[in-house]
Design a binder for these strands. Sequence first.
RNA 1: GGCGGUAUCGUCUAGGGGCUAGGACACCAGAUUCUCAAUCUGGGAACCCGGGUUCGAUUCCCGGUACCGCUACCA
Length: 495
Amino acid sequence: MVVRTRIAPSPTGDPHVGTAYVALFNYALARRHGGQFVLRIEDTDRQRSHPASEKMIFDALRWLRVSWDEGPDVGGPYGPYRQSERSEIYRQHAEELARKGAAYPCFCAAERLAALREEQRQKKLTLGYDRQCRGLDPAEAARRRQAGEPHVIRLAMPLDESMAVRDLLRGEVRFERPQMDDQVLLKSDGFPTYHLANVVDDHLMKISHVVRAEEWLPSLPKHVQLYRSFGWEEPVFCHLPLLRNPDRSKISKRKNPVSLEYYRRAGFLPEALLNYLALMGYAMPDERQEFSLPEFVGHFALERISLGGPVFDLEKLRWLNGVYLRKLAPRELLERLRGHLLSDEYLLRVLPLCQERIETLEDFFDYAGFFFSGEVAYGQAALSAMVPQGRTPAETAKMLSSLLEEKIDRLVEWTDAVIESELRAFGESAGWSVKELFMAVRIATTGRSATPPLFETLAVLGKETCRRRIRKAADLLKLHHKDAKDTKITKTVTS
RNA sequence: GGCGGUAUCGUCUAGGGGCUAGGACACCAGAUUCUCAAUCUGGGAACCCGGGUUCGAUUCCCGGUACCGCUACCA
């Protein structure tokens, strides 16, 4: 059997470390068995999908060198590899199921479903669709569809007491009926949900092993039911443990850097990051900690994956990255730096912002230092200057935090124009003058009050660097707040 | 609430019916060093609990507990 695996990210935000993690294991399995590794873009959520995000995913995976054999950018025999270009395929398959009676149209309005859920919640019942439309007379359903009444297509799950499915690592997993909801397959906008698109594509693209994150395990019965309804052979399913925050919750940006952009900008070497990721849930037979991607592939066996959700330990990643860095010859290290913050590309973005503000070449290094460091140091004076007159450090900290959560985290495009309009809008809605807000952001992101124009600066620094500095500044202000007992800062100190 | 998953040092893990339960990060101490790293040596540190099965369970089975995930016309 030809081993074919895939990674199927949704382009809805920054490229995620979890995507890299799952990609790595899929890549390793395919390469180990001389098969193919496919990249498929799952952009069926029209609201949240973003082309810029798709590009960042490509870039990030290429940076990591987990190369794919088929994908939207390289093509392949089973394309297109972007789900938004396959709508007709899903629609036809949904119809096929409806014809077979394995799926049915549902005309229930969103409000009815919401009310139903609320009622179930209150009565502490199992949440799920009550299958009202499943009993509809087919002729009537057909008539209503004909009349153009909005509807979705739902999967008719078997009404048995339980259903057994198979996971490679867990063996047989038995699900009790209450969990087996009649999942929506085709949304009222004609787009498929994950469940339909995923199964149809995995089959059509001849995926032999579905290796994905554990969060999908609860929906496995739906997927298996889909394969059975179509009369298709099921692939091997293998659910990988979820990467965790230090508090053991599913890894999230609030508690851990998750964007691959962060790791790239911070200067983690791709091979070190991959090596570290491989250590999450996997151990080489001889337990060595350091190994290359080809070595990993050479020894890889799905069965060796351990199931406890591993805590992502930045500390150990840093150590491992240091090991890799120290092994480089100075020439190679130079090359790495030239591909990073000392690339012509980056310098040519920084230099124009600094040129008119320096008088000697050496001035540049002092003036532009914050463009090249990870975090910046905030002196007492800088901390004070971040807090506008008449406002408290606590207020400022809160303002910066909500800026992060309400605006910055949600931005996919990171250009000076976008940043400017978003910052202005945020200041306005929060009741802060542009002057107040921009100075706070300026100091938070650069550590100083005299800098090149703010938006260009933020654009060059990149979202991840900005977010991490703003986070730190906000945290420091909170401490400041404790010490200063919430006193208003009256004097303005600049440095 | 319901459904499902998981459980070995603080963290990542090896192991497996009888072992002084091994390694890595972190931590501590010493060596080395102009300093700091790096390096070397040493140290402390774990089988969730209760029942079975067994001559013997950390390992196998059952129950509990804890943690995690899912419970959308998001993926």
